[in-house]
């Protein structure tokens, strides 16, 4: 296998340090791909839930009925979308404060908005989870690969120095083996960087929608608070 100079032979004959580097890079690549797929699914689900909830919300449905639907959904152990969670947090706080009575409408409004902000940041955190890992893989794996390459080339030059007759055949396998490390680093980094950029822009657009919805919903609550005859 060593004679035919293929990648497997090279990896099998590489020095321990280079093999370790390759192992790390492999693990990083696998993990980053797990993240890529998982984030992709999560973001898709979030977008889908967001659109369907927006549709229902603007269909002129009664808000308390919408809230009850969500509650029954949660009882059935079904996931509720991010936007729905914000709505539920704000609406629950609003109703609770209103039912207590004797509370200033400003305070009711402020409480509802605070609850929605909390829910918003929780949702944002959910969406952005693991994206930093992708960013780290994207920026660090080329360096790890480079490290492996440098070590491999160092080793091959050391072995070259001990040879009486320096020929390309002595150095070539070592350098090829070292370059495999760089290749693996790039192989791990490129998808990670692409996915990170793509996903962070998607997260931005989704959270943008969330905050817009928050504003709209609080304006609805505001209207409801002031249009209804105060007791």
């Amino acid at each position: 296998m060593g004679e035919s100079l293929n990648v497997w032979g090279l990896i099998a004959e590489a020095t321990t340090a280079v093999q370790l580097v390759m192992l790390i890079l492999m693990a990083a690549s696998v993990t980053s791909w797990v993240m890529i797929v998982q984030r992709w699914m999560v973001l898709n689900a979030a977008e889908k839930g967001m659109f369907s909830f927006e549709k229902r919300f603007w269909s002129g449905m009664d808000l308390s009925q919408l809230f009850r639907e969500g509650s029954s959904k949660q009882k059935e152990n079904q996931a509720t979308g991010g936007m729905e969670n914000i709505f539920r947090a704000g609406f629950k706080e609003f109703m609770r404060l209103r039912q207590q009575g004797g509370i200033d409408s400003e305070v009711v409004m402020g409480g509802a908005q605070r609850a929605m902000r909390v829910a918003y940041s929780r949702e944002e955190e959910k969406l952005e989870k693991n994206l930093t890992f992708l960013a780290t893989v994207g920026s660090v794996t080329p360096y790890i690969g480079l490290f492996g390459t440098v070590i491999g080339i160092m080793n091959s030059f050391i072995s070259l120095a001990s040879q009486a007759q320096a020929s390309l055949q002595v150095v070539a396998p070592g350098i090829a083996e070292a370059l495999i490390a760089t290749a693996m680093g790039l192989f791990a980094a490129i998808p990670a960087v692409v996915a990170y950029n793509r996903y962070s822009s998607r997260v931005d657009s989704i959270t943008g929608n969330y905050s817009t919805f928050t504003e709209e919903f609080s304006s609805i609550l505001h209207r409801q608070l002031y249009s209804s005859p105060s007791k």
């Binding site: 797929v37 949660q74 152990n77």
Partner: peptide
């Protein structure tokens, strides 16, 4: 409440891809 994560699927997908 079960939060959707899809980790098993993505792990399988990733390992398959690398394989």
């Amino acid at each position: 409440m079960r939060v959707f994560n899809g980790y098993p699927v993505s792990i399988i997908a990733s390992v398959l891809f690398h394989g």
